[in-house]
Design a protein around this nucleic acid. Structure first.
Lengths: 213, 213
DNA sequence: GTAACAATACCAGTATCCCGGTATTTTTAC
DNA sequence: GTAAAAATACCGGGATACTGGTATTGTTAC
């Protein structure tokens, strides 16, 4: 258990002023927390960290300059003792695990309650992995889409995916790219194999589910 | 111009505690604003309005009990003088216009700055339609998808859409629904006509763009 | 009750796709 | 520099989809 008399030094990184103020309000009256700073960009926060490390940071994933996953990695590389708590609207399972994989100590959705927020912060500072209740539910419910890990697509395949989605026929695509129709057929075949589907309609649906269109 | 000495009476409806606190913090120090109440559900707010009308309400669109568009209509029906400012994360053009259509005085995205928020509130109270800067941009950029208004689909067509997206062939669908293959072909043909596409792949893409899958 | 629409069904012909292979040439990565 | 991966290309045949019609029978809405 965390027992120190000192306050927990905490930083907030979020480019939404409303969220920023909300978090500050919820946290500033807490006697155990000291808000070391609030930042709207990843660069600002990294620069600050160099001068003044903090114990824990509430990190939005959608930042203007850098993706939350990348920022989290950077933070943990340079400051392994700083706890990163993802604080986001993204409720996709894959996002949660990407953040954890990148060293985050937990994942909170922005609809978290004040009480829960406090619990999660102290859990994280005490070295535990922690989640808001909704996140726990998301993690518990695996959908088939979550499971089927897609083999990586090649550039050509991604390109074809878009053309197929636009309703282009193999012939049209072949002409457009100055390739043999047979080549296009091969690519289309490989795409369907990778997605585990048996026609173009299902291919487009699956690709959409994987945020590839 | 709004000139009254009295403060603007304002309510907030949002089920995210962090957002709620953020708005309160940003607004409570403003001498021109009186926060009449904060609510997490549409029902709570409607009940409150009956007792104590407010001049303006900041309304989240994603509420647990009722959709923002429906709530806005109800508010404007019973209390036409109450200004509704949509306050949301939804950045889709169609959403903006649905809210305006339902009587909203403006649309703000949650990444709004403190200054902008104040400007928008006074604009709305002064009877003007108002938007946060990002919303203005969204409204200015029409995409083809926004324009093509889809003819309404029948029940059967919606059903077929899903089966086609799942990769089912006409034969499979016909068996599944105990219908003639020829009937399925007709439905599929009508679907493609309605969406203005010429094959199943494009159909699924278009349907997805219209949030129908 | 009647007009409009939805749902059903039919047909013939063509276009396109999908499957099962195999195989060569570039590119990329260590 | 060499091994792996990507991109290219080929083939035949069967399956499926798409086009362009028409037409009958429920079902709703005024």
């Amino acid at each position: 258990m965390w027992q120190d008399n000192e306050k927990i030094s905490l930083a907030i990184v979020d480019d939404h002023p409303v969220i920023l103020h909300g978090l500050q309000t919820l946290l500033k009256d807490n006697p155990r927390i000291y808000i070391a700073g609030s930042f709207a960009t990843g660069a600002d926060f990294l620069a600050f960290l160099e001068k003044k490390p903090v114990q824990i940071v509430l990190l939005d994933i959608a930042l203007p300059d850098i993706h939350g996953v990348a920022l989290c990695k950077k933070i943990k590389q340079r400051f392994p003792t700083t706890c990163v708590l993802a604080f986001s609207n993204h409720s996709e399972r894959i996002m949660i695990f990407k953040m954890l994989q990148s060293g985050a100590s937990g994942y909170l959705l922005k609809n978290i309650s004040a009480g829960e927020l406090m619990t999660c912060i102290s859990d994280a500072v005490n070295g535990q992995i922690t989640f808001s209740s909704e996140v726990k539910q998301i993690m518990a419910h695996v959908t088939p889409t979550d499971l089927n890990t897609l083999p990586p697509l090649t550039k050509r395949e991604r390109q074809l995916l878009h053309l197929i989605a636009d309703g282009k026929t193999n012939n049209e695509i072949a002409e457009l790219l100055s390739l043999s129709v047979l080549t296009i057929e091969t690519h289309r075949k490989n795409l369907m194999q990778k997605f585990g589907v048996k026609n173009a309609a299902a291919l487009i649906k699956a690709a959409t589910a994987h945020h590839l269109l």
